[in-house]
Structure formats: C-alpha cells, structure tokens
Simulated scan of single mutants.
Amino acid sequence: MAYKNSRSMHRALIIGTIVVGFIMLNMHLIGVFARPILPGIEVGDKVMPLIAQEVLPAWLAGIVLAAPMAAIMSTVDSLLLLVSSAVVKDVYLNYIKPDASHTRVKRMSFGVTAILGILVFLMALSPPDLLIWLNLFAFGGLEATFIWPVVLGLYWDGGNKYGALASMIVGIASYIIVDQFFPNLLGMHNVVVPILLSLVAFVTISMLTKSFIQNQSAYQDQLERSV
C-alpha cells in the first residue's frame, strides 16, 4: 500500500494496530461470552453463526452472516487466481514453453484453476475440528519458509539468492515432514526445528556459493565492459 509520506506511514501503523486489535479482541470475546448463552456448542467454528441467530433479529443475522461469506468467497477466488497465475506465468511460461500462444495460456489458466478448485473442494469435505489449526499450520509453513530469506536478506551482506532458495526449500520440506511424521520433535513446537534447519541451509549455501557469485559478477562486469 502506498503512503503520502513517512508521517502518514507511522500514523497508519498506530491506527491500524488499534483498529485490528479492537476487532480481534472483540471477535475472541464473542467466542468466550457465547458459552453462557449457548452452552452446548461442540464445534468452535459454529459459534459466530449460532450466536448471531440467537441474539439478533432474523434480517440482521442474515446480513451479519452474509458478510463473512462474501469475504470468504472473495478470498478464495482471489487465491485461486493467484496460484493459477503463478503456476502458468512463473513456471509454465518461464521454464516449460516460453513461446506459448495467448490461447494456450488462457486454456492452461482455466485448467489449473479448475484443478485447484476441485482439490480445494475435496479437501473441504473433510475439514479439521477447528479451522484455526489450518491457519496455524499455514502460518507455520510461511514462517519456516520465508523468515531467513527476509531477515538475513535484509541484514546480512553475505546472503545470496542460492542461500535464500535453499532456505525456503529446506524450511517448507522439513516443516511438512516434522508436522506429519515427527510432531513435537524433541519436545518443541513443530516450527522450531524447521526454522533452525532453514537457517543452517541459508548460511551454509550462501557461504559455499560466495565465490561462485563473485566470479559470476566479475564475468558479467567483463562482458559489459567488452560491449
């Protein structure tokens, strides 16, 4: 998001923190306060719709429930388009068939979007007990994958693209393996070991490829001078 100046950005940080904190606090309090009103709730994800139907008029409950459904639909279709675009443009066009025609690209986009939609639908048929577990799993994967490319990419001069790529691959792969086959490895949260492994991968590969990067840069400079 763009901002007019640094003062506006700092003000937005403060206002955004207050607004988001207020919203999140009240959302969680709704779940807590719903217990006395609806003591028989067994699935936490049903709290919001049930409490809306219980305490609000029918017309207002319909509006309240329509809002998150609209947000869900908007988010899902945006993510489907984002993933299909990444697959088609970043993978197919860059590495498989760079000279693909517009019609071919359009068909590929439709096909990838349809396949992803079907997979998501099939996964939704057997949801977890609480959707928050799915969110936590996703955020853990993002953390294990991108924490060191972002942090060390900004603050360590010795990092390079090969170290970042190795860190991302090791981070996401180790996170999935630990979460699925070795939960709470060494008595720690599933994300701790993958973060440590991705750190080792980033530092090790960056140091091993340092001379290669330097030689590559020198060769590129030589080519530019010769031209």
Rank of each mutant, 00 (worst) to 15 (best):
I72L: 14
M48S: 15
D77V: 13
F121C: 06
F22P: 02
G171H: 03
K210V: 00
I172V: 10
L131R: 06
I115V: 15
V19C: 09
V55P: 04
M188A: 15
I147K: 00
M9I: 04
P194L: 14
Q220K: 15
Q220N: 15
I132P: 02
G16E: 06
V192F: 15
L142G: 06
L130Y: 03
Y92L: 14
I37N: 13
N215W: 05
I132H: 07
H102C: 07
K4P: 02
S109W: 00
L125W: 01
L29T: 11
P194Y: 12
V64W: 08
V43G: 15
V112G: 11
V150Q: 09
L152R: 06
Q216K: 06
F139D: 00
L13H: 01
R107D: 03
I147C: 10
M24W: 12
G31L: 12
N94F: 04
V47L: 12
G44A: 12
L134M: 02
S101R: 07
M48C: 11
V170E: 02
N184F: 14
A86M: 13
L56W: 10
K4M: 12
S78T: 15
L136N: 09
N215D: 12
Q222M: 11
T209N: 03
W156L: 04
I72C: 12
V120F: 14
S206T: 00
V88M: 09
P149E: 04
L13G: 02
F33I: 08
P128G: 05
A86P: 09
I205N: 04
L116C: 14
S174K: 03
V150F: 13
P194M: 13
G117Q: 08
R107I: 04
G31M: 09
V83M: 13
I195L: 14
G171Q: 09
D179G: 07
M48D: 07
V19P: 10
R7Y: 04
S74A: 14
E54F: 10
V83H: 12
L29E: 15
G21T: 08
I63Q: 01
G31P: 08
I18N: 04
R35C: 13
L81P: 01
L186K: 06
L122Q: 11
I14D: 05
F212V: 07
I18S: 13
Q214T: 04
M1V: 07
F181H: 15
L197R: 03
N135S: 03
I96F: 07
V170R: 11
S109K: 00
F121Q: 10
M73N: 05
L130T: 03
F202G: 07
I72R: 07
A144G: 01
V200K: 09
G31A: 06
R11V: 11
L154E: 01
L197H: 02
L65A: 13
V105M: 05
M73W: 00
A86F: 10
G111H: 05
A71N: 03
I132T: 02
G31I: 13
S198F: 06
G158M: 02
E224C: 12
A52I: 01
Y175E: 12
H28P: 12
A12V: 04
L93P: 07
A173F: 14
V191L: 12
Y162R: 09
L65I: 13
